[in-house]
Write a protein that binds this DNA or RNA. Structure first.
Lengths: 337, 337
DNA sequence: ACTTGGCACTCGGGAACACAGAGTGCTAGA
DNA sequence: TCTAGCACTCTGTGTTCCCGAGTGCCAAGT
């Protein structure tokens, strides 16, 4: 049904439309890409492609524009991820290398990705799931209040103020801290609930109320912050682009963690570093936009996702190349720290 | 030069223009606000106001629109800050009360303010300047690397990974930690540099290289993070509004910490809780936008600034009321924690 | 001295219209 | 199966025209 030439025509249409933002006609197509056939022949092929739903025409007498299905075929079979220039690679490396802590790594990454792709970049903070407890700190603020600080081996720090049910002396707080650390140090975060389950019973009765309160906050922290936090950058790049959905909707989605989470999607468990591309209406949460995302993290320790969001009419090969490259570099940085 | 009626006309023009977004003519004006004078009289007043530069007309035959100078007069002399409804107050209180830590307070505040004003809200993190050291923690990551965690009485936590010049045993790290805490606990952050200046000399020679490295990172953290971090929310509210400056420029400014910092402006030292209003061209960094901001923080402890950014054509009384109310509530929350 | 009604003037924006140009589909011929 | 030619259909643009809102000014009224 679709011979090689028809595919070549589709590819040419996508490329031209992406670069010019104007419906592409048979004549211009036959000229610019040396297809060695006449415009009339191209027209026939276009008619066939339209019949199959890969392209469409905005009005009766205009050129053709790819449909979501057309972009899909283009991404799957007609294009290959474009690697970055060596200058870009170096820029990435030096830019990311200057990061001082996890926050900084994430901030730099999201900005870098936005600048590189000229789209909106979205980065999820590395999940706690696979990380392990490095240290638990309890700092007395006053006799009814302590600050709980949880430090993980990925460099992440979570803090919470805990209101105690009764006054507790500093010495007993220190004792609790020692017990907690003895119990949890080096353990995976996912196993924390099991490990602390019977902890109160092993304590002196007078320590139990405080311990229970603190532990419940600790568990809450683990659950609530669990792969919740997502940041974005490059909203300014939305100014030029036109989405079929309103600009307002896109901006609203960007500020909703939950929506962003869904946009980035799930990491496929078997091939975590594979690029996910969702095109236009394939994307159930924000039609009219495309998302290119991938998992990142060190080694077999898949931690989180990052990607970019842009209009359906985007340069997929370049965007995919940038996303893949950034994901690799940031994984590398994380592994080293 | 400007009698009471002319001022009333100016006020009416501002109010009408803000609510309708259309140049307001003499006839509609005389009708809607019962000025008890004829349109012709109003026209004369308008001519005078235009002469003085308070209003202008987009085209020869259109109504009048306030100039920046007109808005300025309106804000300074013709309007009064509109208090929030009691329902809004309750909403603020309950929304802010649920915050679990400083991060959460700031995030909730900025979202609340955006929603309340339907503008872009901007909140600066409370400065470290006036806070005191609650605890310093050193966590060995491996023998050449420790994590430095600084906890302040405002609930803020700063962390940094420190690369040591030589391998250091855990016991010596613990010793350093004890020394640091003994030296710094409860001290104001601004006095930290003085307090640690001669610290290395008081240590055993073999501890000095590590101590120097750690201290330099500590000082760096204090300087760099010093009132740097600013967050915003409500970018979606930009979608409808029209600025004389491009939407792109506004979005770019929002992602530039430095620009945001300047937009929020300085807190006047004598009356820190005063509302700052910068209108249109008064604002040197982003013409065509207005900023309503104020300082916030507990008691005499002025900590940081918050505010909103919107088009020059905004409802100043309402916006100012919301900014003032939110600043008060968040100050209250911070004082209590 | 201010206010008011009347009046001529200006200009923006919408409707109606024509037109050129790009692009298409179809058909007949190579 | 490809190509050339041709008639057709649109959109976008430029032009013209006209309506109406709004103004400024002047002369009369209070």
């Amino acid at each position: 049904m679709l011979d090689d030439r028809k595919l070549a025509v589709l590819r040419a249409i996508v490329e031209d439309y992406v670069s010019t933002n104007e419906p592409v006609g048979s004549k211009a197509l036959a000229e610019r890409h040396n297809l060695k056939v006449s415009p009339a022949t191209v027209r026939n092929d276009m008619a066939a492609l339209e019949e199959e739903g890969y392209i469409t025409q905005p009005h009766t007498s205009a050129g053709r524009v790819p449909t979501d299905k057309g972009y899909r075929l283009f991404v799957d079979r007609l294009s290959q991820v474009k690697p970055l220039s060596s200058a870009e690679r170096r820029a990435i490396e030096t830019f990311l290398a200057g990061a001082v802590d996890l926050d900084d790594v994430v901030t730099r990454t999201v900005r870098l990705l936005a600048q590189l792709t000229r789209q909106v970049a979205v980065v999820q903070y590395p999940t706690l799931t696979r990380s392990t407890v490095r240290h638990v700190e309890l700092v007395p603020l006053n006799d009814r209040r302590v600050m709980l600080v949880l430090i993980t081996n990925t460099g992440r720090v979570e803090q919470r103020v805990v209101e105690l049910p009764e006054a507790v002396e500093d010495a007993r707080v220190a004792h609790l801290r020692a017990v907690l650390n003895a119990c949890l140090d080096g353990c995976g975060l996912t196993s924390v609930p099991d490990l602390v389950a019977d902890l109160p019973e092993r304590l002196a009765p007078e320590d139990r109320p405080a311990a229970v309160t603190i532990l419940s906050v600790l568990l809450e922290t683990l659950v609530e912050r669990h792969d919740e936090k997502i940041v974005f950058a490059g909203a300014a790049n939305l100014a030029g682009a036109d989405f079929s959905v309103g600009l307002r909707d896109v901006l609203e989605a960007l500020e909703e963690q939950v929506v962003l989470m869904r946009l980035l999607g799930e990491t496929s468990t078997d091939t975590p570093s594979a690029l996910t591309v969702r095109i236009g209406s394939e994307n159930p949460y924000l039609r009219g936009t495309s998302v290119v995302a991938t998992g990142y993290g060190s080694g077999d320790n898949q931690l989180a996702r990052l990607g970019v969001l842009g209009p359906t009419r985007m340069d997929y090969p370049v965007t995919m190349g940038a996303v893949r490259a950034v994901a690799r570099y940031v994984s590398q940085i994380l592994a080293a720290s």
